[in-house]
Design a protein around this nucleic acid. Sequence first.
DNA 1: ATAGATATTGATACAAAGTATCATTATGTG
DNA 2: CACATAATGATACTTTGTATCAATATCTAT
Lengths: 156, 156
Amino acid sequence: MITLLSIMIQNINTTPRASRPDLLAILEDQGYRPTNQRRDVVSLLERKGEGFTVEEVSGELPEVGRATVYRTIKLLLKAGVLCKLALPDGAPKYIMARAEHHHHTVCVKCGTVGEFRDTTVERVLRAVGAEIPGEIVGHRMELYLVCLDCQDRPEG
Amino acid sequence: MITLLSIMIQNINTTPRASRPDLLAILEDQGYRPTNQRRDVVSLLERKGEGFTVEEVSGELPEVGRATVYRTIKLLLKAGVLCKLALPDGAPKYIMARAEHHHHTVCVKCGTVGEFRDTTVERVLRAVGAEIPGEIVGHRMELYLVCLDCQDRPEG
DNA sequence: ATAGATATTGATACAAAGTATCATTATGTG
DNA sequence: CACATAATGATACTTTGTATCAATATCTAT
């Protein structure tokens, strides 16, 4: 009954990507000026392996104004080098994007973000999109789970 | 944390029910008292065909306190008779749940919410979940599109 | 029906995640 | 260097809720 071919999952719950992009260069390519504040923000993000919130980043960069941190992260989102995802209650979380199209897992206990890629998911999304009136312009998908660490450490 | 988990699980396993649900009775079955305020809120929601925001509902019910509207909608979410979904920017929107497990489409121009159901999506999600370390407890998925009406009425 | 227990309400304050304003400062260009 | 423009930061404001808590409504047992 279940005839799933080519399930392919990569880098589950692993974060370090081989080649980090030069985020500041990406911003410059889009015509934005390389300011010290942007340097500070992207430098911090480039070292972040895990998901993060803007307030967290802002707290770690007291020398950069809160609004500027939000602004810089918004630019990176638009540039597609950051992903914004949502916890079950809708609380936002950010993580560096990978090159390939992928989706995220979020542990509902500890908030750790992982990623997975499944070509079948993409094919199904395209197939469903073809059945639906209107032009699909995007989608959102997150899997919520209890990670192995949190299973080992029951009851919080 | 625990509350989040509860909301989410209810959203996943939407309870099948009659086409015209008596929301107040559902709340009573769960041990909640049938107050006039709850009557007002569910009565309004039962007449809502489209997606809505809580502030919108609250605005239409000036005789019910804002906090109570939020509280009632939260109860309905937990009961699984409402779905909470997110626009591309994360802005929340609510809509009455259908009996079957389904997902939503949102027009990025006019905000109109639609729904679709595709068993392949469910199978893929289960299959992917089986490959991922940790116990899947829920997911979120929304398709963003430009609806036919908004395509006909290009650029505003 | 009444008393007492418990649930619910509403006003208010507060919180989290941003955005708008705008005077000041930094950056790029000729 | 001068000037135009972009960016910043402080602040206020917005949205989407949640926490508090005294007052009120509802339920239960007599």
